[in-house]
Design a protein around this nucleic acid. Structure first.
Length: 139
DNA sequence: GCCAACGTTGGC
DNA sequence: GCCAACGTTGGC
């Protein structure tokens, strides 16, 4: 299984909205960047993704699961980009903020920090575990 | 609100 | 194919 991070502005699409989309999940569409789209194409059913709120909050707030692999994004007229389907898995006990990620030296090389504009990125198992542990600790 | 970083577009 | 101009994202 692979791990990923998906970024969304919470006033456009938030984890709460994802939660209310229920068991059938929802489409993760609108990606218009080749690098991000290539990451979407690599996702397999069952992969887990951190859900990060950009701009407002700037923190990882939960986890969603990939339930359908890449297919043509119906919102993309050019037919170049893909969407996936994800389902709410859970909220983190404590959100992991960008600030605390920056302060953690093992996470210095996360694309979240180095490539702040990338909206879909891979996370190694090692880093996934570190972030999960951070989400169990009150800051 | 500003601006750095980065991606895309279009003229040449 | 290069690069200037422009647009977008996202942190601060």
């Amino acid at each position: 299984m692979n791990y990923w991070l998906l970024k969304s502005e919470p006033d456009v699409w938030s984890l709460d909205q994802q939660m209310h989309s229920g068991i059938k999940g929802s489409m993760w569409d609108g990606v218009r960047n080749y690098q991000a789209a290539n990451n979407l194409r690599k996702m397999k059913k069952g992969d887990m993704c951190f859900f990060y709120h950009s701009n407002i909050g700037k923190e990882i707030v939960g986890i969603v699961k990939v339930i359908k692999e890449a297919y043509p994004d119906p919102t993309d007229k050019s037919k170049k980009f893909v969407a996936i389907q994800v389902r709410f898995d859970r909220k983190l006990e404590y959100p992991v903020t960008l600030e605390s990620i920056k302060k953690t030296k093992e996470l210095k090389d996360l694309p979240l920090i180095k490539q702040s504009r990338l909206s879909v990125m891979p996370i190694d198992t090692k880093h996934w575990k570190i972030i999960l542990n951070m989400s169990r600790i009150v800051k």
